[in-house]
Design a binder for these strands. Sequence first.
DNA 1: AGTTTCTAGTTGCAACTCGAAACCTATTTA
DNA 2: TAAATAGGTTTCGAGTTGCAACTAGAAACT
Lengths: 176, 176
Amino acid sequence: MTQPTPAKLREPLAEIAACCSLPQALETMGERWSFMILRASFNGLHHFEEFLEELGIARNILSNRLTRLVESGILKRAPCIDDRRKIEYRLTDKGLDLLPTMIALRQWGEKWESGVPSNPVLVDERDRRAIQPISILAHDGRVLTHHDLCWIDIADLNTGAVDDDHEGVVKRIATI
Amino acid sequence: MTQPTPAKLREPLAEIAACCSLPQALETMGERWSFMILRASFNGLHHFEEFLEELGIARNILSNRLTRLVESGILKRAPCIDDRRKIEYRLTDKGLDLLPTMIALRQWGEKWESGVPSNPVLVDERDRRAIQPISILAHDGRVLTHHDLCWIDIADLNTGAVDDDHEGVVKRIATI
DNA sequence: AGTTTCTAGTTGCAACTCGAAACCTATTTA
DNA sequence: TAAATAGGTTTCGAGTTGCAACTAGAAACT
């Protein structure tokens, strides 16, 4: 009488390769519409009907995504005081912290997909000058590419306190 | 005899909000498994069966994703010379250029999802010190948050050549 | 030469997710 | 009180995912 195991479809990405937190990040943000909703939030949209109109997403899917984003702590939901029909969705600190990722993805799209620099341009409010391309920086500010990176065990990390040679190379990231 | 318009399901995200290249970037990279395949590529995996084993993805989905990534110019496909059964998938420059985005997402996951710093750690090969957190930098290197950013028309961009005040504020990005 | 194994797929099927439209409930507003 | 608005939920057809089985071409073994 052994029940056939109900096939577990859509296994969470997080279970694959526990060493890396990328799969966990993708669990919520990897879904269709998640980044578009995030972008709309950064642009000052807060209400269900606003997202609906701006994104052209189906109501049920929007409802589902907002719930998931709230569950993940990326948005928080609060009833409006002045109009109790309305609910406000606002970015949490966790959500706000996705801005560099979102801009990196946008810049990549700008460079490789659309080709032309988008208009309007994202600038530093203080001096009205365009922000730098998002890049990988060494502790001293040098820009790094995949050629310059490798993974080492946390125990072999050079904190700058000592300066001797270590032996714990694990793997280069680049293979091109 | 007017044919009812065949419902266009899964309208490309790119058609929404043409001003921004984020939707275009998400067209390929927003799909489930795309970033995981990218990460595996950065880790030196090049062959179908390697991806299959590493990711635990279904064969047909992997086949589909690899095809899409090749079509988008993120991977390139080349038959192996030493073993003509094999096909090599390698990152193109366009694919390699997604590294900052991927690391930004990974760092976000590390901070907000897994909590603990991942091990092994990504370091600058030169001095074995951990890379900086990916962040948004002004032209002079100051770290910017969403409070500091706004969008302006490209015509009102301050290039540094002139230094007078401009009037073309379009929209602040932050609303918290 | 003939069989087996390996690589990279394709096909078929069941479960699941998406999208569009209709429906529901609690507030405002006219 | 009737109508409009805000934020959902339900229903259903179509598309996508996941698994297993099958296929085709190339290499390895006997």
